[in-house]
Simulated scan of single mutants.
Amino acid sequence: MINKAAVAFKKFRSKSSKKFDILVTTPNRLIYLLKQDPPGIDLTSVEWLVVDESDKLFEDGKTGFRDQLASIFLACTSHKIRRAMFSATFAYDVEQWCKLNLDNVITVSIGARNSAVETVEQELLFVGSETGKLLAMRELVKKGFNPPVLVFVQSIERAKELFHELIYEGINVDVIHAERTQQQRDNTVHSFRAGKIWVLICTALLARGIDFKGVNLVINYDFPTSSVEYIHRISRTGRAGHKGKAVTFFTEDDKPLLRSVANVIQQAGCPVPEYIKGFQKLLSKQKKKMIKKPLERESISTTPKYFLEQAKAKQKKATGQSSKKKVTLEGKS
């Protein structure tokens, strides 16, 4: 497994193909090794190239990895090479790419395409506003739930905010996001798997790539930007035949996105309020726009705005005084 490309370059060099049978890596780290002079890795003897989360990796634009994958494909020159693409969802543009660029494509589908598993009990919960989400969250805690629980929010900042609110609820809660160090993330994942953490707050990034066995409840605190993202989020529970539950909060602002997610819920045999079925579907351009630019939401906080502003002003003043003192001391020396 390649964790850090620079370290891997020193460790592997061009002999890596002789030392290892299986290599697990992200595209960017592998590209780094391929671009070294001489290349830090040799892929000419690779017989199987497996692309997991393929719909995400083949995404078009800045969020996708098409160019990197193309370089990796070209570096795997063995006549025995076989390519496999795995994903819980299968996007139309990925399917078209496969048909155009791959020979003898075989498609294997387990269950209905782009659908949620029937082992997950799904619920849509109207909370009115952003304030209503926090009230609904506290109500779920008050009623009692069966850990472990994953809670999804749409940004790192909101993950931090919700963590600071829930830490006072008397539950073992933690947060995982890209701004935490690798060691911190590893420790959090280990604690969650060991049952030391009951509730783990995370962004959509965690909906892919990390496998947690036995998650009993997924809470979509912030509404997902697409049905595909929704499927990946709730697929953290109900795995390997186990039962699970997913609760999705929605506000007035989330109404444009409701129809596509409601269709997924209905297809899985779970109840959907009748009035939601009548909502208009978003056009393709509107969907892409909302995925690229999610809704701006109010901050998650029960602290009055006045006190927050006072705290910021106090911190700014303290920082200014510290800088001034430093300048004065430097001047005296």
Rank of each mutant, 00 (worst) to 15 (best):
A178N: 10
E229Y: 12
D37P: 01
L257E: 05
T251L: 05
R180G: 12
H177K: 14
A313T: 04
K15A: 08
F249W: 09
V199A: 10
E274Y: 07
K332P: 05
T328E: 08
A311N: 07
T44P: 15
I110S: 05
F126S: 00
V153A: 11
C202K: 03
K142M: 02
S129H: 12
R158P: 00
V199N: 02
K292F: 14
R239C: 03
I156C: 06
K255Q: 09
H79S: 07
C76T: 15
S45R: 11
K35I: 05
K317W: 11
F192Q: 15
F90N: 06
R29I: 15
C270K: 01
K245H: 08
P224S: 03
S322G: 09
T77V: 02
A112H: 11
L125I: 03
T119Y: 03
K288P: 06
L135V: 00
N263G: 07
V24S: 07
T188C: 11
K317P: 01
L205S: 15
I171G: 07
G331W: 06
R239A: 03
Y275D: 12
V228Q: 08
I72V: 15
W198L: 14
V24T: 09
D253Y: 14
A91P: 15
E309M: 11
S260Y: 08
A8C: 13
G241P: 12
I110L: 08
T63V: 04
